[in-house]
Design a protein around this nucleic acid. Structure first.
Length: 262
DNA sequence: ATGACCAAAGCATTTGGA
């Protein structure tokens, strides 16, 4: 089965692009970020017509996450656990579908560094890591999918030196990512392509896509039950070149059936 | 160092994005 993640950057403005890509790529499950729409404005009907059931959590103007599935999907939670008065953004939704727990997340950008937004990003990350530890120990197949707003290593940006003091690449945030992964998660795309420069985002500015000045920000973290089923994956880079495209491209992986995995 | 391009909100221009 095929699972994808796509920071759509406005689900209503880019609905034609999303539907075109869904018809072409035929993923079974899709995690979406940056809906930029209130929950009531989620295009549920158009997606049902395209064959997808959905769970979502929007908010006015910004953020917003959703999970689409060709099979029934049950919502498990619509935020990370814990208390934080600044935790009002719609950045996390977790569902159960195809026998797996799928967490769809949109980590804060965190710029400018240093500052309160970067501190918020670190706080958000530490709560994700705490909850990830809980999920890791459930005994269920789990994946943490979405826009992490983190380039994990120097291989994940076209120009590492330019990003040393950027919130997407600061050493604290790379350390937080490495700390999360060390719980036993597999970074699926990096596992499949250990040495390649693979990007999932190209800025609208400065012809970044044309110059391939990209960043790898969208990740699949698989727990060991799913890591053994990973069979392929990639970035639908051409979609970034479409008219009215998001600044991110869809990323996808394929898993072998549970009974075929070893 | 700056600005370049987008969407949303709301109807001009600001804000956030990464």
């Amino acid at each position: 089965m095929k699972i994808a993640t796509y920071n759509i950057n406005g689900i209503n403005g880019r609905l034609p692009v999303l539907l075109r890509w869904l018809a072409e790529a035929e993923p079974d499950v899709v995690c979406l970020q940056e809906l930029k729409a209130e929950s009531a404005r989620f295009p549920e009907h158009a997606l049902l017509k395209a064959g997808y059931q959905a769970i979502w959590k929007g908010e006015k103007s910004w953020n917003g996450v959703a999970i689409l599935s060709k099979d029934a999907i049950r919502e498990l939670r619509d935020d990370l656990p814990g208390e934080d008065e600044s935790f009002t953004h719609s950045r996390y939704i977790e569902g159960f579908t195809f026998g797996m727990v799928i967490a769809c997340l949109y980590l804060p950008n965190g710029n400018p560094y240093p500052g309160p937004k970067f501190a918020y990003k670190l706080r958000w990350f530490s709560r994700l890591t705490a909850h990830a530890n809980t999920l890791m120990n459930t005994g269920l197949p789990v994946m943490l999918v979405g826009d992490y707003n983190v380039m994990p290593t120097e291989l994940d940006t076209y120009k590492p030196e330019k990003y040393v003091n950027n919130a997407l690449f600061r050493k604290e945030i790379r350390a937080a990512y490495a700390d999360l992964v060390s719980q036993g998660w597999t970074d699926a795309i990096r596992k499949l392509y250990p040495d390649e420069r693979i990007y999932t985002f190209w800025d609208y500015f400065r012809n970044a896509y044309g110059r391939d000045a990209g960043l790898r920000l969208d990740h699949f973290l698989l727990n060991p039950l799913l890591g053994g089923r990973l069979s392929s994956g990639g970035v639908d880079k051409h979609v970034r070149g479409w008219e009215k495209s998001s600044d991110h491209a869809p990323v996808w992986i394929e898993l072998a059936d549970a009974d075929q995995a070893q």
